[in-house]
């Protein structure tokens, strides 16, 4: 190791510190893996933090509306990286036909937030790792690294605990769980540059086919591709350096209403 760490090294070290800190505090944790580039990067950092042996489950909240490529990717790396994968679905809502046509807010809440609640209750997780970043959305920019959720799963954004230097909140009795955000300080371009440097596999929906690519992925029903010819990581990085369009412009949750993200998040959405 040279005597000068690059910005990516600094981000990596900071994230690994946070990951280890949360595990040391809580032990009963899980990482939320949406299989997008951010949570896959987070999973990669978790592998690094634990020398390849992830000591807790990897949780995928499955709305059943995800892209086929996402499911394929999940199965491949589950085997290759050898972790304990938990797939959580809100079976009841799915069997009743919940979908984006019933209302996007309703659908996100039922199939993601409630499914997550069910999984936490079932497995008794005390903390969850999430790959959210401050530069994704103004609401996420307000987040703490360790962010408590109460028993109703609510985010009390008006009264967040202080977080000094690298000293974080630990769990208090009336709190349901803590959200841990090791990638909070990363930017979209940092993630891509790191993906490139580390050769982290990502779903190929991010790379252009026929002039279109996805910049942010989730459910097939609620993601729109952008116009792009970036069909390699290098081209994606180059595109981001010049792009004037925000990352989540193709995501429906951010559009419907000015405060939809805040409302979803205060109910426990990621």
């Amino acid at each position: 190791m040279s005597d000068n760490l690059s910005q990516l090294d600094k981000l990596e070290n900071q994230s690994i510190f946070i990951i280890r800190e949360a595990y040391s505090q809580f032990r009963k944790v899980a990482i939320l893996w949406s299989i997008g580039k951010d949570s896959t990067t987070l999973l990669w950092l978790v592998r690094k933090a634990f020398f390849g042996k992830i000591p807790f489950p990897v949780l995928h909240i499955d709305t059943t509306y995800k892209f086929k490529e996402i499911y394929d990717f999940r199965e491949k790396y589950k085997t290759e990286w050898g972790f304990n994968l938990i797939i959580a679905k809100n079976e009841e809502a799915i069997s009743k036909g919940m979908g984006p046509d019933k209302g996007k807010f309703q659908c996100c809440n039922e199939l993601k937030t409630i499914a997550l609640k069910q999984a936490i209750a079932k497995h008794g997780f005390r903390a969850l790792y999430l790959g959210i970043r401050r530069d994704e959305h103004g609401i996420r920019a307000k987040e703490r690294v360790f962010s408590p959720r109460d028993e109703d799963f609510e985010w009390d954004y008006k009264n967040q605990p202080p977080e000094l230097w690298d000293q974080y909140k630990t769990k208090a009795a009336d709190e349901e769980h803590l959200r841990v955000h090791p990638l909070l300080g990363w930017r979209e371009i940092d993630v891509w540059e790191y993906v490139k440097r580390e050769n982290i596999p990502v779903v190929d929906l991010y790379f252009a086919k026929n002039g279109k690519r996805y910049r942010s992925i989730g459910c097939e029903t609620c993601c729109m591709p952008i116009d792009s010819d970036a069909d390699t990581i290098d081209k994606v990085v180059e595109e981001l350096k010049t792009s004037k369009i925000s990352e989540r412009s193709g995501r429906a949750q951010d559009k419907e209403d000015d405060y939809m993200m805040q409302k979803l998040r205060s109910l426990g959405y990621m």
Partner: peptide, 22 residues
């Protein structure tokens, strides 16, 4: 408003929590 994203922040015209931008 670029920083004050919370509904309460915009309605009251104040910043409630710290935020980070690049």
């Amino acid at each position: 408003y670029l920083l004050d994203h919370l509904e309460e922040e915009r309605k009251q015209g104040i910043t409630i929590d710290t935020t980070q931008v690049f």
